[in-house]
Nucleic acid binder design. Structure first.
Lengths: 231, 231
DNA sequence: CGCGAAATTGAAGACACTCAAAGAGTGTGG
DNA sequence: CCACACTCTTTGAGTGTCTTCAATTTCGCG
């Protein structure tokens, strides 16, 4: 299920966890500023990380896929909110158990390190997208990234169509745009025969043109997949 | 010098490194897409991480302070560029040594994990700033963050004035704005008696008003400092 | 003193936002 | 199975923040 946790690693972690938790789609795992004593290791499902801004705006920080580590923060307050996009399962590891876990199983430590630094690289990628790219590129990138990452996670599904439980408002919140403007851009992409995004269903009609509109290079796509490259 | 690396940890890492490297202010450690075989552990100085966008734009991803881990990427290509803002020293750890290092010294693994996840949280913070805040708040936040982080790193300096080797263009590249617009906003902040930023020197005239303009809460500031909160 | 880089200022324009209303799709309960 | 309620999408018109382009001034440094 989770690429980052081979079965063996899973069972090792299991002996340090305080328990599992299942969350229904749409429910919150935790909210910003809420007390959060345990690290949440996502085992199954999609989870949305977000930050709320005082004027009512919301910024989506990441879409966490299985293997992600949520709730890492100094102090015991969550710095951001987390809510399940699909039904999800997390494995809870109390903060104070993390030290012993890594002490006894350094290999796990290395894996966690790689997971988090991949998350950091992804965040960097989003930063330059939101900070320096026009709306069309941001949206094309965001959708392409979601597509690539989910295909990598669940290679079974093989079509160019996928279920994406997001509204256009969500896409706006991830790209730093308004839902209304996202709608206009999507309209353009559809008119150009590049993709369709209708009621939680994304269909890529012309992958080449989408890559072109997103202005991503092969290297970046590889980074999205999370694969370590060959030597 | 580096808060994250107690002397003991330093000496352990030393036995796994391939060497040190000193970089003069303004010089590049590595450029985007350049081959990069070793992890760069920053020991001393400020390093700027950036990404270049095809239209000529640049996005600053982070200002790395001592303790930061640079050059972590899948494959052996750098996903971003790194350039020294001040004279700097890095300790180079070949990628293939990382496994053995953590294997034999799990405590180091835990520290590295905490370092990277703090960097990730900082990137998330920047995301919501750039994605959802107006120019004035972004700039106020950016300057306040730099101030807080550098004060935490070098507590010796105690005044409300600091040396910041940046141009207004740099501030634009970190906040996703143009240098010209940064200038106008800084003009406003100066007119209000909040701060002065003139030729590589930042002086905070009214800390309370700056915090107000930046719209940061205490919790976020604590996260910037990198301190783990008490239980 | 003069050169180059950075800062400053103005004017015009563009991209994205706000406000608002209508249309389409989904789900639920009778 | 239909009707209603709700959410999400779609479209228009007007506005505003930030950008672009360009000229001028200030500053640091040789």
């Amino acid at each position: 299920m989770c690429r980052d946790c081979a079965p063996k690693a899973q069972s090792i972690i299991a002996s340090y966890k305080s328990g599992d938790r299942t969350i229904k789609a749409g429910q919150a795992l935790f909210r910003p500023t809420e007390r959060c004593d345990a690290i949440h290791h996502l085992v199954e499902g999609w989870v949305l990380l977000y930050d709320l801004v005082d004027d009512g705006g919301r910024q989506i920080l990441n879409f966490a896929l299985p293997g992600a580590l949520l709730g890492l923060s100094p102090g015991r307050m969550a710095l951001y909110g987390a809510e399940a996009l699909t039904d999800a399962t997390v494995c809870l590891i109390p903060h104070e158990r993390l030290g012993p876990l890594i002490e006894h199983h350094p290999g796990i430590g290395l894996r966690l390190l790689q997971t988090v630094w991949r998350e950091r690289n992804l965040a960097y990628d989003h930063l330059s997208s939101i900070g320096r790219r026009p709306a069309r590129q941001r949206i094309a990138r965001a959708l392409l990234e979601l597509f690539v990452r989910s295909r990598m996670q669940w290679p079974a599904h093989r079509s160019e169509e996928m279920h994406l439980p997001l509204t256009q408002e969500h896409i706006g919140d991830m790209t730093g745009l308004t839902g209304v403007h996202v709608n206009r851009i999507l309209h353009g992409l559809r008119a150009e025969g590049i993709l369709e995004f209708h009621y939680r269903r994304l269909r890529i009609l012309n992958p080449d043109k989408l890559v072109d509109a997103a202005r991503v290079d092969a290297q970046t796509v590889v980074a999205w997949t999370g694969r370590s490259a060959p030597d």
